[in-house]
């Protein structure tokens, strides 16, 4: 099969994509929510609620345009929501309800 016939890779499957974008070596200081989101992954894993492969699958299920647009930990947030809802741990309705409180606090 020639390169031409290969189906296009999924958005996360990045190796060899044509880009000349330089590697930005700057590092941002993590925001608190980023630390908390990374920690949430560890806590959910340690309690056996999710495994790493599920987290990766949750990230890979983000539609390509959104995958490109979201920051690293925003993708994790999307994956957690997919998995926690799928497993019946949380419902979309209760997350929406809690969002209202968070919105009020953070604007």
């Amino acid at each position: 099969m020639s390169e031409r016939e290969k189906p296009a890779p999924a958005a996360h499957d990045r190796g060899g994509w044509a880009t000349e974008e330089p590697v930005d070596q700057g590092e941002h200081q993590w925001a608190d929510w980023e630390y908390r989101t990374q920690a949430l992954a560890r806590v959910l894993r340690s309690k056996g609620i999710v495994v790493t492969d599920e987290m990766r699958r949750g990230i890979e299920s983000i539609p390509a345009p959104e995958y490109e647009a979201l920051s690293y930990f925003e993708r994790w947030s999307a994956s957690f929501e997919t998995l926690l809802v799928e497993k019946g741990v949380l419902t979309p309705a209760e997350i929406d309800e809690k969002m209202k409180e968070v919105e009020e606090r953070w604007g």
Partner: peptide
């Protein structure tokens, strides 16, 4: 998405 993460936590 950040707020959504905090809401879930």
């Amino acid at each position: 998405r950040a707020k959504r993460s905090l809401a879930m936590q």
